[in-house]
């Protein structure tokens, strides 16, 4: 597409006029962006503010006011009302275990498909890519039945298996895209030195993939740490509750909810992911921008 297709203005703008217009556009855009960001983020700010207010102030006060006397009582009550450390611990177990499998299995599949190659490589890749659009709901009834049969209901594995399965497509896709860019000579050289496929995998492919591993882990950690549907379907006992299930305990049985304590609990449970996000912020944004524009 060239500019010749555009209707020409009767008189080309002078540069000065153009600069002025650009400045106005910039100022206007900045104000609008700030406004939208404020609206977008305020609900989250509001949760933090509420967790620092007394219940009375939260119930009666102005939702846009800062806490008059910030208090940490809500966090104490949040701690007593439910077993927060247990939920966080369970979420850690599930997230770490799932990530180990997702990274390892994803890398292995991508290595077989992209580096070793075989007769059906493209077909197998296609099979994995299809998984990107498969809705998780389709697996709920079959897995529930199968778990009941083999006695896996109400275990960590019951959550980990589908979390890994449904994360594999994106993981295989990201690793395969990365392996495409590893120069062929790298493998040739190793091959000439007599390295077999296993040595190459551990000595060359793995160490080269650190950045992709970070992207894969982060994308999947958000999905796993926050998973509600698998946990809600396959976990029955209090001991195995992950954070999303645990937070539900704050919804009072009688419909009465201790909101400030609930929001304090929300703040606590978001913190680990938030810290990871802020620490890896640059790498993540870079990963999303790169991943999207390649699509």
């Amino acid at each position: 597409m060239t500019s010749a297709l555009l209707p020409r203005a009767a008189r080309p703008m002078s540069t000065r006029e153009g600069n002025r217009r650009l400045r106005i556009a910039r100022a206007f855009s900045t104000i609008l962006v700030l406004l939208i960001v404020a609206i977008q983020i305020y609900p989250l700010v509001w949760v933090v503010l509420a967790s620092l207010k007394t219940p009375a102030e939260f119930a009666g006060g102005n939702p846009f006011a800062l806490p008059r006397e910030p208090t940490f009582d809500n966090f104490g009550r949040a701690w007593e009302m439910a077993d927060l450390p247990r939920y966080i611990g369970n979420s850690f177990v599930v997230t770490v275990a799932s990530n180990v499998f997702i990274v390892l299995l994803g890398m292995m599949a991508a290595y077989a498909i992209q580096v070793l190659r075989f007769r059906w490589s493209n077909a197998v890749m296609g099979l994995f890519v299809v998984g990107l659009v498969v809705p998780v709901q389709v697996a709920l009834v079959p897995l529930f039945i199968n778990y009941a049969r083999v006695g896996l209901l109400d275990t960590y594995q019951a959550m980990i298996v589908p979390l890994v399965g449904f994360s594999l497509p994106i993981s295989v896709y990201l690793f395969a895209s990365f392996f495409q860019y590893v120069p062929h000579e790298t493998y040739e050289a190793a091959s000439l030195d007599g390295a077999g496929p296993y040595r190459v995998f551990f000595k060359i492919t793995m160490p080269l993939s650190v950045n992709t591993i970070i992207t894969v882990v982060f994308v999947n950690t958000i999905f796993i740490w926050n998973d509600f549907i698998f946990a809600n379907t396959f976990v029955l006992s209090e001991q195995l509750r992950t954070i999303p299930l645990g937070l539900q305990n704050y919804m009072g049985a009688m419909g009465s909810v201790d909101w400030t304590a609930t929001f304090a609990a929300v703040c606590v449970t978001v913190t680990p992911v938030l810290l990871a996000f802020l620490a890896l912020n640059r790498a993540i944004i870079y990963g999303i921008e790169g991943g999207g524009s390649k699509g």
Binding site: L44, W46, N226, F228, L274, F277
Partner: peptide, 14 residues
């Protein structure tokens, strides 16, 4: 990007 990292349960409560 912040809302994307908050769990759906927390979002529902919010």
């Amino acid at each position: 990007l912040l809302p994307a990292i908050v769990s759906t349960v927390a979002i529902a409560l919010l």
